[in-house]
Amino acid sequence: MVHLQSTNLLRCPLPVGKITTSHSGRRSYLTKLADKGVGVFVLAQLAGHRHISTTQRYVSVSDTQLRNAAELSG
């Protein structure tokens, strides 16, 4: 099974001027993948989560995702 690696996290830009933790890094990385269309089940596997509900707490819905969903429905 593949899990998130620190080298992948280094590719994800984090907010400047804010305190960052490993949790915020994982959350940013998972959210970026979700923005690119990666599904929640794949994200859960990458993060090593046993339950989808854990992944859902990690990943926030971005404006891009909302726009894409709106375009698909209309």
Rank of each mutant, 00 (worst) to 15 (best):
G17I: 15
Y58N: 04
Q65K: 11
G48E: 05
L10Q: 12
H51T: 09
E71R: 03
R27D: 02
N68L: 13
P13K: 14
G74R: 14
Q5R: 10
V38P: 00
G17T: 14
G25S: 09
S60P: 01
R57I: 02
V61W: 09
A44V: 10
V59A: 03
R11A: 09
H23L: 10
Y29R: 09
A34I: 06
A70V: 04
T20D: 12
M1C: 09
S22G: 13
H49G: 01
S24Q: 09
G39D: 13
Q45F: 00
T64K: 04
L30G: 03
A44R: 06
L72K: 15
I19H: 11
T54F: 00
K18M: 14
R57V: 02
G17C: 15
T31N: 12
A34V: 08
K18E: 14
S6A: 14
V16S: 03
L30I: 04
G17N: 14
Y29F: 12
Q5H: 10
C12N: 15
G74K: 05
R67Y: 09
G39E: 08
V40R: 00
L43E: 07
L33K: 14
D63F: 06
Q5Y: 05
V38L: 04
S6D: 15
G48W: 01
T20Q: 12
D35E: 10
L66P: 05
S73L: 05
G74Y: 03
F41H: 04
N68C: 10
A34N: 07
V40F: 00
V42C: 01
D63M: 14
Q56L: 03
R57P: 01
T55R: 02
Q5K: 10
V59R: 00
I19M: 12
G74P: 03
V40P: 00
T31C: 04
G37M: 07
Y29S: 13
V59I: 08
S22R: 08
V16R: 08
L66N: 11
L43F: 01
K32T: 06
T64E: 02
S73M: 03
K32M: 12
M1I: 07
Q5S: 13
L46H: 04
L10F: 02
T21A: 13
K18I: 11
S24F: 01
T21D: 14
D63V: 07
S28F: 00
P13E: 15
M1N: 12
T55F: 00
I19R: 14
H49L: 01
S62Q: 15
L4Y: 05
R26Y: 05
V59M: 03
V38H: 02
T20A: 08
N68T: 15
L4D: 04
N8E: 15
T20P: 03
M1T: 12
L33A: 05
G48S: 06
Y29V: 11
S24A: 06
R50G: 09
L9M: 08
R67C: 12
E71K: 09
H23G: 08
H51C: 04
H49Y: 00
K36F: 06
S6L: 12
V38F: 02
T7N: 11
R50L: 08
R26K: 11
L9G: 06
G39M: 13
P15I: 13
S53K: 07
F41M: 06
Q65Y: 04
G37I: 07
V59L: 02
Q5P: 03
I19K: 15
T31I: 03
L10H: 04
T54R: 04
T7D: 13
Q45V: 06
L10I: 10
L66H: 08
H23N: 14
S53H: 08
A34S: 09
I52S: 06
K32N: 12
K36V: 07
H49Q: 05
